[in-house]
Amino acid sequence: MTDNFHVKKPVYPVLSILCSVLIFSGSLIFAKSIWGIFFLLSVFLLLTISGYGKTCFFMLPFIIIYTGIFSVIFYFSSGRDAAFAVQMAVRFGGVALAVIPGLALEPVLLVRNLTQLKCPRLITLGMLITLSFIPVLAKEINQIRGAMKTRGASSFWKPSVFYRAFLIPLVVRLVNISDTLTLSVETRGFINSDVKPSCYKKINFTMKDTIFTIFFFSIFIVCTVLFILEKK
């Protein structure tokens, strides 16, 4: 399911995760200033021209609807305070935008990068299984929901139907998948030992990553300086 968001040439994986953290932090820091909007728009444009265009435009309708709904809610809940609603829009928009670098990144690339940086084996393996399991879980839930409709399950939210027709099959499927994953890990020789792991394909920090880093941190630093000057 998330494969549709992956890009062919993402930014250096560890840098992608760092950018996600900084986008989220920046949206919270600059939310009370006009520079918050400038920061999000600049980062969105930078991601678009850096190879994330497909993912950005996939996410754009969600970002607009998501921030719009919560902005309206906070607008009326704050007594029609437009400034407060804009601040919340920047915060929620930053959360949605921070997802893009990680969403566009294949889990295996991040694991390879962390392995190159000598991250503990248990962490990299656990991260790979966790990230890969999310789309599998979503697929299993959709299949069970489809089977319920085929068998004429009356209501998904009815306790007896939810327990017998959805929860039990889901738990059984998860147990079977976990057993399969365990055998797969053992078969492929993944062990927790002092043996130095190897990478099938190394992840290198390219010129594109350097240019992206310069522009991204320039945007972040400029917005920080302007935000501080505005507060003085």
Rank of each mutant, 00 (worst) to 15 (best):
M1D: 10
N4H: 14
F5T: 13
F5H: 07
F5K: 04
H6F: 15
V11G: 08
P13N: 06
S16M: 05
V21R: 00
F24D: 01
G26Q: 13
S27Y: 08
F30Q: 00
K32E: 11
S33N: 14
S42Y: 03
F44Q: 07
L46P: 08
S50E: 05
S50L: 05
G51S: 08
Y52S: 13
G53R: 09
K54R: 15
T55H: 05
C56D: 01
F62R: 03
I65R: 02
T67P: 02
G68Y: 04
I69S: 06
F70A: 04
S77F: 13
A82E: 07
Q87I: 03
V90A: 07
R91Q: 09
A96R: 05
A96I: 03
V99F: 14
G102F: 09
L103P: 00
A104T: 00
E106F: 01
P107G: 05
V108A: 10
L109K: 15
L114T: 02
T115N: 04
R121F: 09
R121D: 01
I123C: 02
M127L: 15
S132P: 01
S132Q: 12
F133W: 04
I134Q: 01
V136I: 14
A138I: 07
E140S: 07
I141V: 14
I144F: 04
G146H: 05
A147R: 14
M148G: 07
K149D: 06
S154Q: 13
F156R: 10
P159S: 00
F162L: 15
F166V: 02
L170R: 04
V172I: 15
L174I: 06
I177K: 09
L183I: 00
S184L: 09
R188A: 05
N192F: 15
S193W: 02
S193K: 05
S193R: 05
D194Q: 08
K201S: 12
F205I: 02
T210M: 10
F212V: 05
T213Y: 07
F217W: 11
S218Y: 03
S218W: 09
L226P: 10
L229I: 11
L229K: 13
E230F: 04
E230P: 00
